[in-house]
Design a protein around this nucleic acid. Structure first.
Lengths: 134, 134
DNA sequence: CTGATCCATCGACATCTGTCAATATGTATG
DNA sequence: CATACATATTGACAGATGTCGATGGATCAG
Protein backbone atom coordinates (compact mmCIF):
# COMPACT_ATOMS: atom_id res chain seq x y z
CA UNK A 1 0.00 0.00 0.00
CA UNK A 2 1.71 3.18 -1.16
CA UNK A 3 1.69 6.26 0.97
CA UNK A 4 1.40 9.77 -0.36
CA UNK A 5 4.82 10.76 0.90
CA UNK A 6 7.85 9.19 -0.70
CA UNK A 7 11.31 10.37 0.18
CA UNK A 8 13.80 8.05 -1.43
CA UNK A 9 14.33 9.88 -4.68
CA UNK A 10 13.95 13.28 -3.05
CA UNK A 11 16.66 12.37 -0.56
CA UNK A 12 19.20 11.66 -3.23
CA UNK A 13 18.25 14.70 -5.26
CA UNK A 14 19.69 13.09 -8.34
CA UNK A 15 16.38 12.48 -10.09
CA UNK A 16 15.97 14.35 -13.36
CA UNK A 17 12.64 15.89 -14.27
CA UNK A 18 12.00 14.39 -17.64
CA UNK A 19 8.76 16.21 -18.41
CA UNK A 20 9.74 19.86 -18.17
CA UNK A 21 13.03 21.70 -18.41
CA UNK A 22 13.20 22.30 -14.68
CA UNK A 23 15.39 20.37 -12.30
CA UNK A 24 13.87 18.03 -9.75
CA UNK A 25 14.12 20.50 -6.87
CA UNK A 26 12.48 23.28 -8.86
CA UNK A 27 9.32 21.26 -9.47
CA UNK A 28 6.22 21.92 -7.36
CA UNK A 29 5.81 19.65 -4.39
CA UNK A 30 2.99 17.66 -5.91
CA UNK A 31 5.12 16.72 -8.84
CA UNK A 32 7.62 15.07 -6.52
CA UNK A 33 5.36 13.56 -3.91
CA UNK A 34 4.71 10.30 -5.72
CA UNK A 35 8.23 9.50 -6.87
CA UNK A 36 10.12 6.50 -5.60
CA UNK A 37 13.27 4.88 -6.80
CA UNK A 38 12.77 2.35 -9.52
CA UNK A 39 15.00 -0.43 -10.76
CA UNK A 40 17.52 0.41 -13.42
CA UNK A 41 16.02 -0.45 -16.79
CA UNK A 42 17.25 -3.53 -18.60
CA UNK A 43 19.82 -2.98 -21.33
CA UNK A 44 17.87 -2.05 -24.41
CA UNK A 45 19.12 -5.05 -26.36
CA UNK A 46 18.01 -7.36 -23.58
CA UNK A 47 14.47 -6.00 -23.53
CA UNK A 48 14.32 -6.19 -27.31
CA UNK A 49 15.45 -9.81 -27.24
CA UNK A 50 12.82 -10.81 -24.73
CA UNK A 51 10.11 -8.89 -26.54
CA UNK A 52 11.20 -10.50 -29.81
CA UNK A 53 10.84 -14.01 -28.46
CA UNK A 54 7.48 -13.13 -26.96
CA UNK A 55 6.29 -11.70 -30.26
CA UNK A 56 7.30 -14.90 -32.04
CA UNK A 57 5.02 -16.83 -29.70
CA UNK A 58 2.24 -14.25 -29.61
CA UNK A 59 0.02 -16.22 -31.98
CA UNK A 60 -2.01 -19.34 -31.19
CA UNK A 61 -0.95 -21.13 -34.37
CA UNK A 62 2.73 -20.65 -33.57
CA UNK A 63 2.15 -21.75 -29.99
CA UNK A 64 0.60 -24.95 -31.34
CA UNK A 65 3.51 -25.42 -33.72
CA UNK A 66 6.02 -25.19 -30.89
CA UNK A 67 3.86 -27.52 -28.82
CA UNK A 68 3.97 -30.10 -31.60
CA UNK A 69 7.71 -29.66 -32.10
CA UNK A 70 8.38 -30.09 -28.40
CA UNK A 71 6.45 -33.34 -28.33
CA UNK A 72 8.02 -34.70 -31.52
CA UNK A 73 11.01 -37.00 -31.43
CA UNK A 74 11.77 -36.34 -35.08
CA UNK A 75 11.52 -33.22 -37.24
CA UNK A 76 8.01 -32.50 -38.46
CA UNK A 77 7.13 -32.22 -42.14
CA UNK A 78 5.43 -29.02 -43.27
CA UNK A 79 2.68 -31.15 -44.77
CA UNK A 80 1.75 -32.25 -41.26
CA UNK A 81 1.39 -28.65 -40.17
CA UNK A 82 -0.70 -28.01 -43.27
CA UNK A 83 -3.00 -30.87 -42.34
CA UNK A 84 -3.45 -29.81 -38.72
CA UNK A 85 -4.16 -26.08 -38.96
CA UNK A 86 -7.17 -24.41 -40.48
CA UNK A 87 -5.18 -21.91 -42.46
CA UNK A 88 -3.79 -22.01 -45.95
CA UNK A 89 -0.40 -23.37 -46.93
CA UNK A 90 1.20 -19.92 -47.44
CA UNK A 91 0.08 -18.94 -43.96
CA UNK A 92 1.68 -22.03 -42.45
CA UNK A 93 4.87 -21.21 -44.32
CA UNK A 94 4.67 -17.63 -43.04
CA UNK A 95 4.34 -18.75 -39.41
CA UNK A 96 7.23 -21.19 -39.73
CA UNK A 97 9.35 -18.43 -41.23
CA UNK A 98 8.55 -16.22 -38.23
CA UNK A 99 9.63 -18.93 -35.84
CA UNK A 100 12.83 -19.41 -37.81
CA UNK A 101 13.57 -15.68 -37.99
CA UNK A 102 13.13 -15.53 -34.22
CA UNK A 103 15.74 -18.26 -33.84
CA UNK A 104 13.34 -20.82 -32.42
CA UNK A 105 13.34 -23.45 -35.16
CA UNK A 106 15.51 -24.66 -37.99
CA UNK A 107 14.52 -26.47 -41.16
CA UNK A 108 15.97 -29.07 -43.44
CA UNK A 109 14.88 -29.95 -46.94
CA UNK A 110 14.66 -33.61 -47.84
CA UNK A 111 13.63 -34.24 -51.38
CA UNK A 112 10.25 -32.68 -51.86
CA UNK A 113 9.63 -32.05 -48.20
CA UNK A 114 10.79 -29.61 -45.58
CA UNK A 115 11.19 -30.71 -41.98
CA UNK A 116 11.24 -28.39 -39.01
CA UNK A 117 12.62 -28.92 -35.53
CA UNK A 118 13.28 -26.81 -32.47
CA UNK A 119 16.79 -25.42 -32.46
CA UNK A 120 19.18 -27.06 -30.08
CA UNK A 121 21.03 -23.84 -29.39
CA UNK A 122 18.14 -21.69 -28.23
CA UNK A 123 19.01 -18.40 -26.57
CA UNK A 124 18.33 -18.31 -22.83
CA UNK A 125 15.22 -16.19 -23.33
CA UNK A 126 13.98 -18.48 -26.08
CA UNK A 127 14.65 -21.57 -24.01
CA UNK A 128 12.64 -20.23 -21.11
CA UNK A 129 9.79 -19.09 -23.33
CA UNK A 130 9.61 -22.43 -25.12
CA UNK A 131 9.73 -24.21 -21.77
CA UNK A 132 6.48 -22.57 -20.80
CA UNK A 133 4.56 -24.13 -23.66
CA UNK A 134 3.12 -27.56 -22.75
CA UNK B 1 17.47 -36.80 -39.07
CA UNK B 2 14.26 -37.70 -40.86
CA UNK B 3 14.13 -40.47 -43.37
CA UNK B 4 12.11 -40.32 -46.55
CA UNK B 5 9.95 -43.25 -45.53
CA UNK B 6 7.62 -42.83 -42.61
CA UNK B 7 5.20 -45.53 -41.73
CA UNK B 8 3.45 -44.61 -38.51
CA UNK B 9 0.47 -42.78 -39.93
CA UNK B 10 0.29 -44.99 -42.98
CA UNK B 11 0.16 -48.07 -40.77
CA UNK B 12 -2.87 -46.87 -38.88
CA UNK B 13 -4.63 -45.67 -42.00
CA UNK B 14 -6.69 -43.27 -39.94
CA UNK B 15 -5.09 -40.10 -41.22
CA UNK B 16 -7.45 -37.78 -43.08
CA UNK B 17 -6.30 -35.99 -46.20
CA UNK B 18 -7.05 -32.39 -45.35
CA UNK B 19 -5.90 -30.81 -48.62
CA UNK B 20 -7.97 -32.61 -51.21
CA UNK B 21 -11.26 -34.44 -51.13
CA UNK B 22 -9.59 -37.80 -51.41
CA UNK B 23 -9.08 -40.18 -48.54
CA UNK B 24 -5.62 -40.96 -47.27
CA UNK B 25 -5.30 -44.23 -49.16
CA UNK B 26 -6.37 -42.65 -52.43
CA UNK B 27 -3.55 -40.11 -52.34
CA UNK B 28 -0.44 -40.67 -54.45
CA UNK B 29 2.41 -42.27 -52.60
CA UNK B 30 4.46 -39.09 -52.47
CA UNK B 31 1.73 -37.30 -50.60
CA UNK B 32 1.93 -39.82 -47.80
CA UNK B 33 5.63 -40.45 -47.65
CA UNK B 34 6.46 -37.60 -45.33
CA UNK B 35 3.66 -37.95 -42.81
CA UNK B 36 4.31 -38.88 -39.22
CA UNK B 37 2.13 -38.76 -36.17
CA UNK B 38 2.09 -35.45 -34.38
CA UNK B 39 1.05 -34.52 -30.87
CA UNK B 40 -2.57 -33.69 -30.27
CA UNK B 41 -2.98 -29.93 -30.47
CA UNK B 42 -3.48 -27.97 -27.27
CA UNK B 43 -7.04 -27.01 -26.39
CA UNK B 44 -7.77 -23.88 -28.34
CA UNK B 45 -8.41 -21.83 -25.19
CA UNK B 46 -5.05 -22.89 -23.79
CA UNK B 47 -3.14 -21.81 -26.88
CA UNK B 48 -5.04 -18.52 -26.92
CA UNK B 49 -4.19 -17.90 -23.27
CA UNK B 50 -0.51 -18.49 -23.80
CA UNK B 51 -0.45 -16.40 -26.96
CA UNK B 52 -2.31 -13.64 -25.13
CA UNK B 53 0.26 -13.46 -22.35
CA UNK B 54 3.06 -13.50 -24.89
CA UNK B 55 1.43 -10.68 -26.84
CA UNK B 56 1.16 -8.60 -23.67
CA UNK B 57 4.93 -8.90 -23.26
CA UNK B 58 5.79 -8.57 -26.95
CA UNK B 59 6.93 -4.97 -26.59
CA UNK B 60 10.20 -3.72 -25.08
CA UNK B 61 8.50 -0.95 -23.12
CA UNK B 62 6.13 -3.41 -21.46
CA UNK B 63 9.00 -5.78 -20.75
CA UNK B 64 10.78 -2.92 -18.99
CA UNK B 65 7.63 -2.08 -17.06
CA UNK B 66 7.31 -5.64 -15.78
CA UNK B 67 11.02 -5.64 -14.96
CA UNK B 68 10.56 -2.53 -12.84
CA UNK B 69 7.44 -3.90 -11.17
CA UNK B 70 9.20 -7.17 -10.32
CA UNK B 71 12.05 -5.30 -8.66
CA UNK B 72 9.80 -2.88 -6.78
CA UNK B 73 8.75 -3.53 -3.20
CA UNK B 74 5.92 -1.02 -3.47
CA UNK B 75 3.51 -0.12 -6.27
CA UNK B 76 5.00 2.22 -8.85
CA UNK B 77 3.47 5.57 -9.68
CA UNK B 78 2.63 6.24 -13.33
CA UNK B 79 4.71 9.39 -13.12
CA UNK B 80 7.79 7.22 -12.60
CA UNK B 81 7.03 5.30 -15.77
CA UNK B 82 6.53 8.60 -17.57
CA UNK B 83 9.95 9.77 -16.41
CA UNK B 84 11.76 6.60 -17.43
CA UNK B 85 10.47 5.90 -20.93
CA UNK B 86 11.03 7.96 -24.03
CA UNK B 87 7.41 7.91 -25.08
CA UNK B 88 4.56 10.27 -24.35
CA UNK B 89 2.23 10.00 -21.37
CA UNK B 90 -0.71 8.61 -23.40
CA UNK B 91 1.54 5.88 -24.71
CA UNK B 92 2.61 4.91 -21.19
CA UNK B 93 -1.02 4.80 -20.19
CA UNK B 94 -1.77 2.66 -23.21
CA UNK B 95 0.93 0.14 -22.34
CA UNK B 96 -0.19 -0.08 -18.72
CA UNK B 97 -3.75 -0.67 -19.90
CA UNK B 98 -2.53 -3.53 -22.08
CA UNK B 99 -0.75 -5.12 -19.15
CA UNK B 100 -3.87 -4.73 -17.06
CA UNK B 101 -6.18 -6.13 -19.77
CA UNK B 102 -3.88 -9.14 -20.01
CA UNK B 103 -4.28 -9.73 -16.28
CA UNK B 104 -0.65 -9.02 -15.44
CA UNK B 105 -0.97 -5.86 -13.33
CA UNK B 106 -3.52 -4.05 -11.22
CA UNK B 107 -3.76 -0.38 -10.36
CA UNK B 108 -4.87 1.74 -7.46
CA UNK B 109 -5.62 5.44 -7.44
CA UNK B 110 -4.30 7.46 -4.55
CA UNK B 111 -5.26 11.09 -4.72
CA UNK B 112 -3.84 12.45 -7.92
CA UNK B 113 -1.66 9.47 -8.62
CA UNK B 114 -2.15 5.99 -9.97
CA UNK B 115 0.02 3.16 -8.71
CA UNK B 116 0.59 -0.12 -10.52
CA UNK B 117 1.76 -3.46 -9.20
CA UNK B 118 2.03 -7.00 -10.49
CA UNK B 119 -1.07 -8.99 -9.71
CA UNK B 120 -0.72 -11.51 -6.93
CA UNK B 121 -3.09 -13.96 -8.58
CA UNK B 122 -1.36 -14.37 -11.92
CA UNK B 123 -2.53 -17.20 -14.13
CA UNK B 124 -0.02 -20.06 -14.46
CA UNK B 125 0.95 -18.97 -17.96
CA UNK B 126 1.33 -15.37 -16.82
CA UNK B 127 3.37 -16.37 -13.80
CA UNK B 128 5.81 -18.35 -15.96
CA UNK B 129 6.10 -15.59 -18.54
CA UNK B 130 6.72 -12.94 -15.91
CA UNK B 131 9.27 -15.21 -14.26
CA UNK B 132 11.37 -15.13 -17.39
CA UNK B 133 11.84 -11.36 -17.24
CA UNK B 134 14.88 -10.36 -15.13
C1' DC C 1 -14.47 28.67 -7.26
C1' DT C 2 -10.33 28.79 -10.26
C1' DG C 3 -6.30 27.05 -11.86
C1' DA C 4 -2.89 23.43 -11.97
C1' DT C 5 -1.64 18.66 -12.16
C1' DC C 6 -2.10 13.65 -13.06
C1' DC C 7 -4.03 10.27 -15.66
C1' DA C 8 -7.23 8.12 -19.06
C1' DT C 9 -9.49 8.41 -23.35
C1' DC C 10 -10.22 9.79 -28.14
C1' DG C 11 -8.94 10.62 -32.95
C1' DA C 12 -5.57 10.20 -36.28
C1' DC C 13 -1.89 8.06 -38.62
C1' DA C 14 1.92 5.06 -40.05
C1' DT C 15 3.41 0.56 -39.50
C1' DC C 16 3.02 -4.27 -38.53
C1' DT C 17 0.47 -8.69 -38.81
C1' DG C 18 -2.36 -12.62 -40.31
C1' DT C 19 -4.53 -14.25 -44.09
C1' DC C 20 -5.43 -15.60 -48.81
C1' DA C 21 -4.93 -16.16 -54.05
C1' DA C 22 -1.62 -16.35 -57.44
C1' DT C 23 2.83 -17.33 -58.80
C1' DA C 24 7.53 -19.05 -58.57
C1' DT C 25 10.98 -22.56 -57.36
C1' DG C 26 12.63 -26.89 -56.80
C1' DT C 27 12.09 -31.96 -57.00
C1' DA C 28 10.48 -36.35 -58.35
C1' DT C 29 7.93 -39.35 -61.80
C1' DG C 30 7.09 -41.17 -66.20
C1' DC D 1 11.20 -33.16 -71.35
C1' DA D 2 6.47 -32.67 -69.42
C1' DT D 3 3.76 -33.21 -65.60
C1' DA D 4 2.54 -33.39 -60.70
C1' DC D 5 3.56 -32.14 -56.24
C1' DA D 6 5.57 -29.54 -51.85
C1' DT D 7 7.07 -25.47 -50.34
C1' DA D 8 8.38 -20.59 -50.55
C1' DT D 9 7.53 -16.01 -52.20
C1' DT D 10 4.78 -12.14 -53.79
C1' DG D 11 0.94 -8.94 -53.78
C1' DA D 12 -3.11 -7.47 -51.76
C1' DC D 13 -6.04 -6.32 -47.99
C1' DA D 14 -8.41 -5.99 -43.52
C1' DG D 15 -7.46 -5.53 -38.83
C1' DA D 16 -4.30 -4.81 -34.92
C1' DT D 17 -0.60 -2.00 -32.83
C1' DG D 18 2.45 1.86 -31.23
C1' DT D 19 2.69 6.52 -31.17
C1' DC D 20 1.28 11.28 -30.74
C1' DG D 21 -1.63 15.58 -29.97
C1' DA D 22 -5.83 17.09 -28.06
C1' DT D 23 -9.37 16.59 -24.85
C1' DG D 24 -11.79 15.25 -20.57
C1' DG D 25 -12.42 13.86 -15.65
C1' DA D 26 -10.74 13.77 -11.11
C1' DT D 27 -8.15 15.78 -7.40
C1' DC D 28 -5.64 19.10 -4.95
C1' DA D 29 -3.82 24.11 -3.87
C1' DG D 30 -4.86 28.72 -3.14
Amino acid sequence: MPTATRTTAAATGTRSAAHSGRTFEELPVRTRGCCSDVAAPLPEARADDIAGVMRALADPTRVQMVHMLKAATEPICVCDFNAVFHVGQPTVSHHLAKLRDAGLVESEKLGIWAFYRLRGDLSPAAKQAVALIP
